[in-house]
Design a protein around this nucleic acid. Sequence first.
DNA 1: TAGGCAATTGCGGTATACAATATCCCGAAT
DNA 2: ATTCGGGATATTGTATACCGCAATTGCCTA
Lengths: 227, 227
Amino acid sequence: MTESQYLQFSSVTEGTYHYIRNLILTGHFMPGQRLRERELTEMTGVSRTPIREALRMLEQEQLLILESRKGFRIPIPTAKEITDFYELRAELEGFAAAKATHKSDAARLIEITEALNTAEESLNNEELSQVISLNNRFHDLVAIASDNESLGDMLSKLRAKVNLFRTLSWSGRRERPIETLRQHHLIFKAIKTRNEALARSRAMDHVMDSLPLVLEGLKSIHPVGEE
Amino acid sequence: MTESQYLQFSSVTEGTYHYIRNLILTGHFMPGQRLRERELTEMTGVSRTPIREALRMLEQEQLLILESRKGFRIPIPTAKEITDFYELRAELEGFAAAKATHKSDAARLIEITEALNTAEESLNNEELSQVISLNNRFHDLVAIASDNESLGDMLSKLRAKVNLFRTLSWSGRRERPIETLRQHHLIFKAIKTRNEALARSRAMDHVMDSLPLVLEGLKSIHPVGEE
DNA sequence: TAGGCAATTGCGGTATACAATATCCCGAAT
DNA sequence: ATTCGGGATATTGTATACCGCAATTGCCTA
């Protein structure tokens, strides 16, 4: 990582936090793997102080766990944890969709429409990474449309962890973008027609739909030992 | 704070985190107030490094905000933020009650019954602080009964922030413990009779009930300047 | 040869020293 | 008298050095 990539952040700690966080979320580390402070200082070129502050932040976010006198490591999720997590996220995504049903104005609806249309185009052009990022953007926009910032923050963190599970278990495997996009359209239609109950249940089902695949992928995980 | 109080934690950083967190949650600091690292080192007797790590953790928990090169301070909540917060918490407490309807076994139900009975006794003996702590325990037990650890964690953090708002706005003012306890009984009855919809709606209403009082109290806040 | 004990080494935990930036106060000029 | 500017000071941000626990390895003994 070059110096220039840090400049967008107001401090070395912030930059280090995002740098390590990104490594975790992209599956660069394996479940159970230790993150040695020494290695991180060598990778980043910064001293241990900002590294440790960043690690503490990530621990609070539950993207890392700290075992006393043993340091930080990537958590190893169990099937139950993942299931609970998805149920929780489903509830909150459902809540966001329900609130968006009442709170979203015309401008916001247009914005979501455009995101969906662009995703459709990208799908036709087979630009898969584009599609995936626009699919994430759909959820973001719904959360924003729900007009509850705490909810938005919470969902973005939950999605980050969910993404971690996916990355860990699927490795390089792709989402089923066509089906996902179709479901997004259905959720949006319910929001647009101000059908709260339908928006909520479709959003919830949408989340729970991907759970079986993730649980299936979980079996293929081989946690690194490093006890 | 004496040395002995740190011993229950595995590191100075952990102890400092809980110490400062407790000060925040008990309303020891005013909204907008700066937490100078120097003062904290003098209060705790520990060096700046664990102080800063603890502050970073609290920032991640949104119990503090960090302005670049200006340090940490207690956030000043707006009425909208508080409202959004309560709505979010209501949704999650409702979810927890709904899940507890299915997941709670006999032992757990007995535990909750005992907590409610003890609270009742304390109320008759006019031990108010006891009642309040047992009221909090009720919510904890329901969250545990919901059998979703992520949900429990999230709710305990939300309740902490809500408590902060209450402390900030009411100062010393007491909860209406009688009415609270009555509502707890009603929620529990719905859980015990496995009436999911009723448990959910009663839990949600219970949370939203206290919002007007908090918003009223918010007007009396005088944020400290310290710009 | 196997098991246990001790010494060494590596790592995390803490404190301190140094650098950079913001804030505050006082004086001067308009 | 008020405002603007510059310097002093306080505070945050970062790096480094030190301390202590714990795990591992090797040696000694049974």
